[in-house]
Design a protein around this nucleic acid. Sequence first.
DNA 1: CCTCGCAAAGTTGGATCCATCGTTGGACGC
DNA 2: GCGTCCAACGATGGATCCAACTTTGCGAGG
Lengths: 237, 237
Amino acid sequence: MDSDATSLGRSALVDETANAIRARIMSGEIPIGAQLRQAELAAQLGISRTPIREALRQLQAGGLIEVLPRRGAVVRVPSPWEVREAYEVRAELEGLACERAVRRVTRTLLDELRQTSEVLRANERPPAPPGPGGPVSPTTIANDRFHTLIHEMAGNERLARTIRDINEAFPRNVSALVLQDDPRHRADNLAEHERIVAALEAEDAKLARREMRDHVLAAGEQLARWYERRTATVFRG
Amino acid sequence: MDSDATSLGRSALVDETANAIRARIMSGEIPIGAQLRQAELAAQLGISRTPIREALRQLQAGGLIEVLPRRGAVVRVPSPWEVREAYEVRAELEGLACERAVRRVTRTLLDELRQTSEVLRANERPPAPPGPGGPVSPTTIANDRFHTLIHEMAGNERLARTIRDINEAFPRNVSALVLQDDPRHRADNLAEHERIVAALEAEDAKLARREMRDHVLAAGEQLARWYERRTATVFRG
DNA sequence: CCTCGCAAAGTTGGATCCATCGTTGGACGC
DNA sequence: GCGTCCAACGATGGATCCAACTTTGCGAGG
Protein backbone atom coordinates (compact mmCIF):
# COMPACT_ATOMS: atom_id res chain seq x y z
CA MET A 1 0.00 0.00 0.00
CA ASP A 2 1.80 3.10 1.22
CA SER A 3 5.50 3.11 0.57
CA ASP A 4 8.13 4.16 3.02
CA ALA A 5 8.84 7.85 2.68
CA THR A 6 7.76 9.08 -0.71
CA SER A 7 4.15 9.68 0.14
CA LEU A 8 3.87 13.17 1.56
CA GLY A 9 6.98 14.36 3.32
CA ARG A 10 5.79 12.38 6.31
CA SER A 11 9.11 10.65 6.70
CA ALA A 12 9.53 8.46 9.70
CA LEU A 13 12.93 6.94 10.01
CA VAL A 14 11.95 4.89 13.02
CA ASP A 15 9.03 3.26 11.23
CA GLU A 16 11.19 2.55 8.22
CA THR A 17 13.80 1.01 10.46
CA ALA A 18 11.22 -1.15 12.19
CA ASN A 19 9.89 -2.32 8.84
CA ALA A 20 13.38 -3.10 7.62
CA ILE A 21 14.22 -5.18 10.67
CA ARG A 22 10.84 -6.88 10.60
CA ALA A 23 11.29 -7.79 6.96
CA ARG A 24 14.67 -9.32 7.65
CA ILE A 25 13.22 -11.40 10.45
CA MET A 26 10.13 -12.47 8.53
CA SER A 27 12.19 -13.52 5.53
CA GLY A 28 14.43 -15.64 7.70
CA GLU A 29 17.52 -13.58 6.96
CA ILE A 30 17.72 -12.98 10.69
CA PRO A 31 16.91 -16.41 12.14
CA ILE A 32 14.77 -17.27 15.11
CA GLY A 33 16.55 -16.89 18.42
CA ALA A 34 19.19 -14.59 16.98
CA GLN A 35 20.49 -11.68 19.04
CA LEU A 36 19.81 -8.23 17.68
CA ARG A 37 22.82 -6.05 18.41
CA GLN A 38 21.96 -2.41 18.34
CA ALA A 39 25.40 -1.30 17.19
CA GLU A 40 25.43 -3.85 14.40
CA LEU A 41 22.02 -2.91 13.08
CA ALA A 42 22.91 0.77 13.34
CA ALA A 43 26.07 0.28 11.31
CA GLN A 44 24.26 -1.76 8.66
CA LEU A 45 21.57 0.85 8.24
CA GLY A 46 23.98 3.74 8.48
CA ILE A 47 22.23 5.42 11.41
CA SER A 48 22.83 5.75 15.12
CA ARG A 49 21.51 3.47 17.82
CA THR A 50 18.75 5.81 18.91
CA PRO A 51 16.22 5.08 16.13
CA ILE A 52 17.21 1.41 16.33
CA ARG A 53 16.16 1.28 19.94
CA GLU A 54 12.81 2.87 19.22
CA ALA A 55 12.22 0.49 16.34
CA LEU A 56 13.00 -2.47 18.59
CA ARG A 57 10.38 -1.24 21.05
CA GLN A 58 7.79 -1.28 18.29
CA LEU A 59 8.71 -4.82 17.34
CA GLN A 60 8.62 -5.79 21.00
CA ALA A 61 5.08 -4.46 21.28
CA GLY A 62 4.08 -6.67 18.35
CA GLY A 63 5.57 -9.69 20.06
CA LEU A 64 8.00 -10.52 17.28
CA ILE A 65 11.06 -9.94 19.42
CA GLU A 66 11.75 -10.09 23.11
CA VAL A 67 13.74 -7.42 24.93
CA LEU A 68 15.45 -8.62 28.07
CA PRO A 69 16.65 -5.81 30.33
CA ARG A 70 20.36 -5.18 29.96
CA ARG A 71 20.66 -8.35 27.91
CA GLY A 72 19.53 -7.19 24.53
CA ALA A 73 16.84 -8.22 22.11
CA VAL A 74 16.35 -11.63 20.56
CA VAL A 75 13.97 -12.89 17.92
CA ARG A 76 11.32 -14.86 19.76
CA VAL A 77 11.26 -18.60 19.31
CA PRO A 78 7.57 -19.55 19.18
CA SER A 79 6.61 -22.85 20.67
CA PRO A 80 4.35 -25.15 18.64
CA TRP A 81 1.78 -24.58 21.33
CA GLU A 82 1.82 -20.84 20.77
CA VAL A 83 1.48 -21.37 17.05
CA ARG A 84 -1.58 -23.56 17.50
CA GLU A 85 -3.16 -21.03 19.85
CA ALA A 86 -2.52 -18.18 17.46
CA TYR A 87 -3.89 -20.07 14.50
CA GLU A 88 -7.06 -20.96 16.31
CA VAL A 89 -7.63 -17.26 16.75
CA ARG A 90 -6.56 -16.47 13.22
CA ALA A 91 -8.83 -19.19 11.83
CA GLU A 92 -11.78 -17.64 13.60
CA LEU A 93 -10.95 -14.17 12.34
CA GLU A 94 -10.27 -15.22 8.78
CA GLY A 95 -13.50 -17.21 8.86
CA LEU A 96 -15.32 -14.09 9.93
CA ALA A 97 -13.63 -12.09 7.19
CA CYS A 98 -14.68 -14.67 4.63
CA GLU A 99 -18.25 -14.69 5.86
CA ARG A 100 -18.39 -10.91 5.62
CA ALA A 101 -16.72 -10.95 2.21
CA VAL A 102 -19.71 -12.74 0.76
CA ARG A 103 -21.74 -9.59 1.03
CA ARG A 104 -19.27 -7.58 -1.02
CA VAL A 105 -18.14 -10.14 -3.53
CA THR A 106 -17.97 -8.98 -7.14
CA ARG A 107 -17.07 -10.56 -10.44
CA THR A 108 -13.80 -8.59 -10.56
CA LEU A 109 -12.73 -9.69 -7.11
CA LEU A 110 -13.53 -13.32 -7.84
CA ASP A 111 -11.35 -13.08 -10.92
CA GLU A 112 -8.53 -11.65 -8.87
CA LEU A 113 -8.83 -14.50 -6.42
CA ARG A 114 -8.74 -17.00 -9.26
CA GLN A 115 -5.61 -15.36 -10.62
CA THR A 116 -3.79 -16.22 -7.42
CA SER A 117 -4.91 -19.82 -7.86
CA GLU A 118 -3.46 -19.73 -11.35
CA VAL A 119 -0.09 -18.73 -9.95
CA LEU A 120 -0.25 -21.50 -7.38
CA ARG A 121 -1.16 -24.04 -10.05
CA ALA A 122 1.57 -22.85 -12.41
CA ASN A 123 4.21 -23.12 -9.70
CA GLU A 124 3.06 -26.53 -8.62
CA ARG A 125 6.61 -27.69 -9.27
CA PRO A 126 8.76 -24.78 -8.11
CA PRO A 127 12.06 -24.45 -9.99
CA ALA A 128 14.27 -23.93 -6.95
CA PRO A 129 13.20 -23.94 -3.32
CA PRO A 130 14.83 -20.75 -2.06
CA GLY A 131 16.73 -20.98 1.16
CA PRO A 132 16.17 -18.73 4.15
CA GLY A 133 16.80 -15.09 3.48
CA GLY A 134 16.22 -15.37 -0.22
CA PRO A 135 13.64 -13.36 -2.13
CA VAL A 136 9.97 -14.13 -1.53
CA SER A 137 8.72 -16.80 -3.92
CA PRO A 138 5.78 -16.12 -6.28
CA THR A 139 3.90 -18.89 -4.47
CA THR A 140 4.14 -17.01 -1.21
CA ILE A 141 3.11 -13.77 -2.84
CA ALA A 142 0.08 -15.38 -4.45
CA ASN A 143 -0.90 -16.98 -1.16
CA ASP A 144 -0.63 -13.70 0.71
CA ARG A 145 -2.56 -11.92 -2.00
CA PHE A 146 -5.40 -14.44 -1.77
CA HIS A 147 -5.85 -13.82 1.93
CA THR A 148 -5.28 -10.07 1.74
CA LEU A 149 -7.92 -9.76 -0.96
CA ILE A 150 -10.47 -11.44 1.26
CA HIS A 151 -9.51 -9.22 4.19
CA GLU A 152 -10.16 -6.19 2.01
CA MET A 153 -13.44 -7.62 0.82
CA ALA A 154 -14.53 -8.02 4.43
CA GLY A 155 -14.59 -4.25 4.74
CA ASN A 156 -13.36 -4.10 8.32
CA GLU A 157 -9.97 -2.52 8.82
CA ARG A 158 -9.65 -3.55 12.42
CA LEU A 159 -10.29 -7.14 11.43
CA ALA A 160 -7.60 -6.99 8.75
CA ARG A 161 -5.19 -5.34 11.12
CA THR A 162 -5.79 -7.89 13.86
CA ILE A 163 -5.11 -10.77 11.49
CA ARG A 164 -1.99 -9.05 10.23
CA ASP A 165 -0.74 -8.46 13.76
CA ILE A 166 -1.08 -12.14 14.55
CA ASN A 167 0.73 -13.16 11.39
CA GLU A 168 3.55 -10.74 12.01
CA ALA A 169 4.17 -12.24 15.44
CA PHE A 170 5.66 -15.30 13.76
CA PRO A 171 8.74 -15.23 11.54
CA ARG A 172 8.35 -16.83 8.15
CA ASN A 173 4.83 -16.55 6.99
CA VAL A 174 3.06 -19.90 6.86
CA SER A 175 3.02 -20.48 3.19
CA ALA A 176 6.66 -19.57 2.82
CA LEU A 177 8.29 -22.74 3.98
CA VAL A 178 5.53 -25.19 4.70
CA LEU A 179 4.00 -25.02 1.27
CA GLN A 180 7.29 -25.27 -0.55
CA ASP A 181 8.34 -28.42 1.23
CA ASP A 182 5.68 -30.93 0.44
CA PRO A 183 3.88 -31.06 -2.92
CA ARG A 184 0.95 -32.70 -1.18
CA HIS A 185 0.49 -29.65 1.03
CA ARG A 186 0.62 -27.42 -2.01
CA ALA A 187 -2.11 -29.46 -3.64
CA ASP A 188 -4.25 -29.40 -0.50
CA ASN A 189 -3.71 -25.67 -0.16
CA LEU A 190 -4.77 -25.06 -3.75
CA ALA A 191 -7.87 -27.22 -3.39
CA GLU A 192 -8.87 -25.40 -0.22
CA HIS A 193 -8.47 -22.04 -1.90
CA GLU A 194 -10.67 -23.17 -4.74
CA ARG A 195 -13.34 -24.40 -2.38
CA ILE A 196 -13.32 -21.02 -0.67
CA VAL A 197 -13.69 -19.22 -3.98
CA ALA A 198 -16.54 -21.53 -4.90
CA ALA A 199 -18.32 -20.81 -1.64
CA LEU A 200 -17.85 -17.08 -2.18
CA GLU A 201 -19.23 -17.34 -5.69
CA ALA A 202 -22.22 -19.28 -4.44
CA GLU A 203 -22.64 -16.56 -1.81
CA ASP A 204 -22.91 -19.19 0.88
CA ALA A 205 -21.65 -17.22 3.88
CA LYS A 206 -21.71 -20.06 6.38
CA LEU A 207 -19.92 -22.44 4.05
CA ALA A 208 -17.32 -19.84 3.11
CA ARG A 209 -16.64 -19.25 6.76
CA ARG A 210 -16.24 -22.92 7.53
CA GLU A 211 -13.99 -23.55 4.54
CA MET A 212 -11.73 -20.64 5.43
CA ARG A 213 -11.65 -21.64 9.06
CA ASP A 214 -10.60 -25.18 8.24
CA HIS A 215 -8.10 -23.93 5.71
CA VAL A 216 -6.34 -21.70 8.23
CA LEU A 217 -6.43 -24.38 10.90
CA ALA A 218 -4.80 -26.83 8.50
CA ALA A 219 -2.13 -24.30 7.59
CA GLY A 220 -1.54 -23.59 11.28
CA GLU A 221 -1.11 -27.26 12.01
CA GLN A 222 1.49 -27.51 9.26
CA LEU A 223 3.31 -24.47 10.61
CA ALA A 224 3.24 -25.89 14.13
CA ARG A 225 4.68 -29.17 12.86
CA TRP A 226 7.37 -27.25 11.04
CA TYR A 227 8.31 -25.46 14.24
CA GLU A 228 8.37 -28.82 16.03
CA ARG A 229 10.77 -30.27 13.50
CA ARG A 230 12.86 -27.12 13.62
CA THR A 231 13.31 -27.14 17.38
CA ALA A 232 14.11 -30.85 17.27
CA THR A 233 16.78 -30.18 14.66
CA VAL A 234 18.23 -27.31 16.61
CA PHE A 235 18.60 -29.33 19.77
CA ARG A 236 20.43 -32.06 17.93
CA GLY A 237 22.96 -29.58 16.62
CA MET B 1 -0.81 -9.61 38.52
CA ASP B 2 2.87 -8.70 38.31
CA SER B 3 3.82 -5.42 39.89
CA ASP B 4 6.15 -2.91 38.39
CA ALA B 5 9.70 -3.68 39.39
CA THR B 6 9.67 -5.79 42.51
CA SER B 7 9.24 -9.12 40.82
CA LEU B 8 12.68 -10.47 40.02
CA GLY B 9 15.22 -7.80 39.27
CA ARG B 10 13.85 -7.72 35.74
CA SER B 11 13.27 -4.01 35.87
CA ALA B 12 12.21 -2.34 32.69
CA LEU B 13 11.85 1.37 33.02
CA VAL B 14 10.55 1.75 29.51
CA ASP B 15 7.76 -0.77 30.03
CA GLU B 16 6.83 0.84 33.32
CA THR B 17 6.75 4.21 31.63
CA ALA B 18 4.57 2.89 28.83
CA ASN B 19 2.19 1.36 31.36
CA ALA B 20 2.06 4.59 33.33
CA ILE B 21 1.24 6.68 30.29
CA ARG B 22 -1.26 4.11 29.04
CA ALA B 23 -3.00 4.07 32.40
CA ARG B 24 -3.30 7.84 32.41
CA ILE B 25 -4.81 7.78 28.95
CA MET B 26 -7.16 4.90 29.65
CA SER B 27 -8.43 6.53 32.83
CA GLY B 28 -9.16 9.74 30.99
CA GLU B 29 -6.65 11.74 32.99
CA ILE B 30 -4.99 12.48 29.67
CA PRO B 31 -7.94 13.17 27.39
CA ILE B 32 -8.50 12.08 23.81
CA GLY B 33 -6.72 14.28 21.30
CA ALA B 34 -4.30 15.66 23.87
CA GLN B 35 -0.73 16.33 22.90
CA LEU B 36 1.89 14.25 24.69
CA ARG B 37 4.89 16.49 25.30
CA GLN B 38 8.01 14.47 25.87
CA ALA B 39 9.64 17.02 28.13
CA GLU B 40 6.50 17.33 30.24
CA LEU B 41 6.08 13.57 30.71
CA ALA B 42 9.79 13.24 31.46
CA ALA B 43 9.61 15.90 34.14
CA GLN B 44 6.48 14.36 35.70
CA LEU B 45 8.05 10.92 35.87
CA GLY B 46 11.43 12.25 36.94
CA ILE B 47 13.32 10.69 34.03
CA SER B 48 14.84 11.90 30.80
CA ARG B 49 13.14 12.02 27.42
CA THR B 50 14.87 8.91 26.11
CA PRO B 51 12.75 6.25 27.84
CA ILE B 52 9.70 8.42 27.18
CA ARG B 53 10.32 8.25 23.47
CA GLU B 54 10.70 4.48 23.53
CA ALA B 55 7.52 4.12 25.55
CA LEU B 56 5.65 6.29 23.06
CA ARG B 57 6.78 3.98 20.27
CA GLN B 58 5.27 1.04 22.12
CA LEU B 59 1.98 2.85 22.53
CA GLN B 60 2.11 3.83 18.89
CA ALA B 61 2.46 0.18 17.91
CA GLY B 62 -0.66 -0.60 19.92
CA GLY B 63 -2.56 2.14 18.12
CA LEU B 64 -3.46 4.07 21.25
CA ILE B 65 -1.51 7.15 20.22
CA GLU B 66 -0.42 8.60 16.93
CA VAL B 67 3.09 9.91 16.34
CA LEU B 68 3.31 12.56 13.65
CA PRO B 69 6.86 13.22 12.44
CA ARG B 70 8.29 16.38 13.95
CA ARG B 71 4.88 17.24 15.33
CA GLY B 72 4.74 15.09 18.40
CA ALA B 73 2.40 12.43 19.69
CA VAL B 74 -1.32 12.80 20.30
CA VAL B 75 -3.88 10.48 21.86
CA ARG B 76 -5.87 9.07 18.97
CA VAL B 77 -9.46 10.17 18.63
CA PRO B 78 -11.36 7.07 17.54
CA SER B 79 -14.23 7.58 15.18
CA PRO B 80 -17.53 5.86 16.00
CA TRP B 81 -16.96 3.84 12.86
CA GLU B 82 -13.66 2.54 14.17
CA VAL B 83 -15.29 1.64 17.46
CA ARG B 84 -17.98 -0.38 15.74
CA GLU B 85 -15.44 -2.20 13.60
CA ALA B 86 -13.30 -3.02 16.61
CA TYR B 87 -16.24 -4.26 18.61
CA GLU B 88 -17.41 -6.52 15.83
CA VAL B 89 -14.03 -8.19 16.03
CA ARG B 90 -14.02 -8.20 19.80
CA ALA B 91 -17.52 -9.65 19.90
CA GLU B 92 -16.40 -12.53 17.73
CA LEU B 93 -13.32 -13.16 19.86
CA GLU B 94 -15.14 -12.92 23.17
CA GLY B 95 -17.80 -15.21 21.80
CA LEU B 96 -15.12 -17.71 20.90
CA ALA B 97 -13.60 -17.38 24.37
CA CYS B 98 -16.99 -18.00 25.94
CA GLU B 99 -17.62 -21.04 23.78
CA ARG B 100 -14.25 -22.49 24.74
CA ALA B 101 -14.78 -21.61 28.39
CA VAL B 102 -17.67 -24.06 28.58
CA ARG B 103 -15.22 -26.95 28.39
CA ARG B 104 -13.27 -25.73 31.41
CA VAL B 105 -16.03 -24.35 33.56
CA THR B 106 -15.92 -25.30 37.25
CA ARG B 107 -18.06 -24.61 40.26
CA THR B 108 -15.42 -22.29 41.69
CA LEU B 109 -15.16 -20.24 38.52
CA LEU B 110 -18.93 -19.92 38.26
CA ASP B 111 -18.96 -18.61 41.80
CA GLU B 112 -16.32 -16.06 40.96
CA LEU B 113 -18.34 -14.90 37.98
CA ARG B 114 -21.42 -14.56 40.17
CA GLN B 115 -19.44 -12.49 42.65
CA THR B 116 -18.83 -9.88 39.98
CA SER B 117 -22.57 -9.81 39.35
CA GLU B 118 -23.08 -9.21 43.05
CA VAL B 119 -20.86 -6.16 42.88
CA LEU B 120 -22.73 -4.87 39.84
CA ARG B 121 -26.06 -5.40 41.58
CA ALA B 122 -24.89 -3.74 44.80
CA ASN B 123 -23.67 -0.67 42.93
CA GLU B 124 -26.81 -0.36 40.89
CA ARG B 125 -27.12 3.14 42.29
CA PRO B 126 -23.53 4.42 42.42
CA PRO B 127 -22.83 6.94 45.17
CA ALA B 128 -20.93 9.43 43.05
CA PRO B 129 -20.25 9.17 39.35
CA PRO B 130 -16.52 9.88 39.26
CA GLY B 131 -15.33 12.34 36.69
CA PRO B 132 -12.57 11.65 34.19
CA GLY B 133 -9.21 10.92 35.73
CA GLY B 134 -10.66 9.73 38.99
CA PRO B 135 -10.00 6.31 40.46
CA VAL B 136 -11.52 3.30 38.75
CA SER B 137 -14.98 2.52 40.08
CA PRO B 138 -15.82 -0.88 41.60
CA THR B 139 -18.36 -1.32 38.83
CA THR B 140 -15.66 -1.07 36.20
CA ILE B 141 -13.42 -3.43 38.12
CA ALA B 142 -16.19 -6.00 38.45
CA ASN B 143 -16.98 -5.71 34.77
CA ASP B 144 -13.37 -6.19 33.76
CA ARG B 145 -13.02 -9.12 36.12
CA PHE B 146 -16.05 -10.82 34.59
CA HIS B 147 -14.56 -10.71 31.13
CA THR B 148 -11.02 -11.46 32.22
CA LEU B 149 -12.20 -14.56 34.08
CA ILE B 150 -13.81 -15.89 30.94
CA HIS B 151 -10.69 -15.17 28.92
CA GLU B 152 -8.68 -17.20 31.39
CA MET B 153 -11.23 -19.98 31.29
CA ALA B 154 -10.88 -20.13 27.52
CA GLY B 155 -7.32 -21.37 27.98
CA ASN B 156 -5.84 -19.58 24.99
CA GLU B 157 -3.33 -16.88 25.80
CA ARG B 158 -3.17 -15.50 22.30
CA LEU B 159 -6.93 -15.09 22.32
CA ALA B 160 -6.82 -13.21 25.62
CA ARG B 161 -3.98 -11.06 24.41
CA THR B 162 -5.72 -10.21 21.16
CA ILE B 163 -8.86 -9.11 22.97
CA ARG B 164 -6.77 -7.05 25.38
CA ASP B 165 -4.91 -5.38 22.54
CA ILE B 166 -8.17 -4.31 20.95
CA ASN B 167 -9.50 -2.95 24.22
CA GLU B 168 -6.34 -1.02 24.90
CA ALA B 169 -6.59 0.75 21.57
CA PHE B 170 -9.49 2.81 22.93
CA PRO B 171 -9.21 5.19 25.87
CA ARG B 172 -11.77 4.71 28.60
CA ASN B 173 -12.72 1.10 28.81
CA VAL B 174 -16.28 0.46 27.76
CA SER B 175 -17.90 -0.04 31.04
CA ALA B 176 -16.17 2.94 32.58
CA LEU B 177 -18.36 5.72 31.32
CA VAL B 178 -21.15 4.13 29.40
CA LEU B 179 -22.37 1.98 32.23
CA GLN B 180 -22.23 4.74 34.79
CA ASP B 181 -24.34 7.09 32.77
CA ASP B 182 -27.59 5.32 32.25
CA PRO B 183 -29.17 3.04 34.87
CA ARG B 184 -30.97 1.24 32.09
CA HIS B 185 -27.67 0.24 30.49
CA ARG B 186 -26.45 -0.99 33.83
CA ALA B 187 -29.52 -3.17 34.19
CA ASP B 188 -29.15 -4.53 30.67
CA ASN B 189 -25.49 -5.20 31.27
CA LEU B 190 -26.23 -7.10 34.45
CA ALA B 191 -28.94 -9.18 32.82
CA GLU B 192 -26.63 -10.05 29.94
CA HIS B 193 -23.92 -11.15 32.31
CA GLU B 194 -26.35 -13.38 34.14
CA ARG B 195 -27.56 -14.96 30.91
CA ILE B 196 -23.95 -15.70 30.01
CA VAL B 197 -23.33 -17.32 33.37
CA ALA B 198 -26.49 -19.37 32.98
CA ALA B 199 -25.37 -20.59 29.56
CA LEU B 200 -21.96 -21.48 30.96
CA GLU B 201 -23.57 -23.38 33.82
CA ALA B 202 -25.82 -25.24 31.40
CA GLU B 203 -22.67 -26.00 29.36
CA ASP B 204 -24.43 -24.83 26.24
CA ALA B 205 -21.43 -23.72 24.19
CA LYS B 206 -23.35 -22.33 21.25
CA LEU B 207 -25.72 -20.35 23.44
CA ALA B 208 -22.88 -19.03 25.57
CA ARG B 209 -21.10 -17.87 22.48
CA ARG B 210 -24.16 -16.12 21.11
CA GLU B 211 -24.97 -14.43 24.41
CA MET B 212 -21.44 -13.14 24.81
CA ARG B 213 -21.31 -11.99 21.22
CA ASP B 214 -24.52 -10.02 21.56
CA HIS B 215 -23.40 -8.64 24.90
CA VAL B 216 -20.17 -7.25 23.47
CA LEU B 217 -21.91 -5.90 20.40
CA ALA B 218 -24.39 -4.07 22.59
CA ALA B 219 -21.60 -2.64 24.71
CA GLY B 220 -19.77 -1.58 21.58
CA GLU B 221 -22.82 0.18 20.26
CA GLN B 222 -23.12 2.10 23.52
CA LEU B 223 -19.46 3.06 23.39
CA ALA B 224 -19.77 4.16 19.77
CA ARG B 225 -22.77 6.32 20.69
CA TRP B 226 -20.77 7.80 23.55
CA TYR B 227 -17.96 8.71 21.16
CA GLU B 228 -20.54 10.26 18.83
CA ARG B 229 -21.93 12.45 21.58
CA ARG B 230 -18.41 13.35 22.69
CA THR B 231 -17.24 14.53 19.29
CA ALA B 232 -20.47 16.48 18.86
CA THR B 233 -19.87 18.20 22.19
CA VAL B 234 -16.26 18.97 21.37
CA PHE B 235 -17.14 20.63 18.10
CA ARG B 236 -19.65 22.88 19.78
CA GLY B 237 -16.99 24.10 22.16
C1' DC C 1 41.47 -31.74 35.42
C1' DC C 2 37.81 -29.22 37.02
C1' DT C 3 35.94 -25.21 39.58
C1' DC C 4 35.75 -20.85 41.38
C1' DG C 5 36.88 -16.02 41.02
C1' DC C 6 38.32 -11.89 39.14
C1' DA C 7 39.38 -8.64 35.61
C1' DA C 8 38.73 -6.81 31.03
C1' DA C 9 35.88 -6.23 27.07
C1' DG C 10 31.55 -5.45 25.09
C1' DT C 11 26.71 -4.05 25.38
C1' DT C 12 22.76 -1.87 27.06
C1' DG C 13 20.23 2.14 28.70
C1' DG C 14 19.51 6.71 30.54
C1' DA C 15 21.07 11.53 30.04
C1' DT C 16 22.59 15.15 27.32
C1' DC C 17 23.74 17.81 23.09
C1' DC C 18 22.53 20.07 18.93
C1' DA C 19 20.61 20.60 14.21
C1' DT C 20 16.17 20.93 12.11
C1' DC C 21 11.57 21.70 11.75
C1' DG C 22 7.00 23.58 13.25
C1' DT C 23 4.60 27.19 15.61
C1' DT C 24 3.52 31.61 17.26
C1' DG C 25 3.50 36.52 17.80
C1' DG C 26 4.45 40.92 16.01
C1' DA C 27 5.62 44.24 12.50
C1' DC C 28 5.31 45.74 7.95
C1' DG C 29 2.85 46.64 3.72
C1' DC C 30 -1.36 46.90 1.10
C1' DG D 1 -8.21 46.84 9.19
C1' DC D 2 -6.50 42.68 7.27
C1' DG D 3 -3.32 39.53 5.15
C1' DT D 4 1.56 38.29 4.74
C1' DC D 5 6.21 37.75 5.99
C1' DC D 6 9.82 37.08 9.27
C1' DA D 7 12.08 36.27 13.49
C1' DA D 8 12.17 34.21 17.99
C1' DC D 9 10.68 30.41 20.63
C1' DG D 10 9.70 25.65 21.47
C1' DA D 11 9.65 20.92 20.40
C1' DT D 12 11.22 16.79 18.04
C1' DG D 13 14.69 13.51 16.55
C1' DG D 14 19.20 11.74 15.62
C1' DA D 15 23.89 11.53 17.54
C1' DT D 16 26.88 11.14 21.28
C1' DC D 17 28.44 10.40 26.07
C1' DC D 18 28.96 7.75 30.12
C1' DA D 19 27.69 4.78 34.00
C1' DA D 20 26.09 0.20 35.08
C1' DC D 21 25.58 -4.42 34.04
C1' DT D 22 26.49 -8.84 31.61
C1' DT D 23 29.49 -11.86 29.61
C1' DT D 24 33.80 -13.93 28.63
C1' DG D 25 38.46 -15.34 29.14
C1' DC D 26 42.27 -16.25 31.93
C1' DG D 27 44.52 -17.70 36.03
C1' DA D 28 44.84 -19.48 40.72
C1' DG D 29 43.51 -22.95 43.83
C1' DG D 30 41.55 -27.32 45.17
